[in-house]
């Protein structure tokens, strides 16, 4: 199965470097960590550039509407170590805002726009945060659970 990073050590190092920003996130995949939104960009930069982790590839950027919060999920992959990591950011239900990581991976550009379009998550600092799949004057964000299907 997937190679897994030593999350305890990783979280310890991140906390030491950026000041209490990450913690291990327990779920069924055993490869998730949780990061505070304020420090997200720095953490991602570190994960990409530190040769120990070398997460050169942003595999996926997803957003989930949980009953208690919005979660933005980043799946990272390393081509050299072949290990994976899931970074989760939990956001406020009323005003979901998270810094954009377009500066780290350009691949995030379109995916963040999609998450904004369909889930209504604001990516601060995104160069061009506009709707991408739906029309510009569309009202609402359809992937949210409170969005009513209008068939």
């Amino acid at each position: 199965m997937d190679k897994i990073v030593d999350r305890e050590a990783l979280v310890g190092e991140l906390n030491q470097k950026f000041g209490n920003c990450a913690e291990v996130f327990e779920d069924n995949t055993n490869q998730s960590i949780k990061v505070k939104p304020e420090k997200l960009v720095e953490v991602m930069q570190e994960l990409r550039d530190n040769p120990k982790y070398d997460f050169k590839v942003l595999m996926n950027l997803n957003s989930v509407d949980y009953p208690e919060n919005f979660t933005v999920v980043y799946h990272l992959n390393s081509l050299t170590h072949l290990h994976k990591l899931t970074v989760k950011v939990e956001l406020d239900k009323v005003n979901p805002q998270v810094p954009s990581i377009t500066s780290v991976w350009n691949a995030a550009n379109v995916q963040e726009r999609e998450a904004y379009d369909l889930m209504g998550i604001l990516f601060t600092g995104h160069p061009n945060l506009k709707r991408i799949l739906l029309v510009d004057d569309f009202v609402g964000h359809p992937l949210r659970k409170d969005w009513k299907m209008q068939a």
């Binding site: 595999m59 997803n62 989930v64 350009n106 691949a107 550009n109 379109v110 995916q111 999609e114």
Partner: peptide, 15 residues
């Protein structure tokens, strides 16, 4: 509960 499709074309076209 949530199903996300990571589409390679969608990301490739971004370039």
């Amino acid at each position: 509960y949530r199903l996300r499709i990571y589409s390679p074309c969608f990301v490739n076209i971004g370039i």
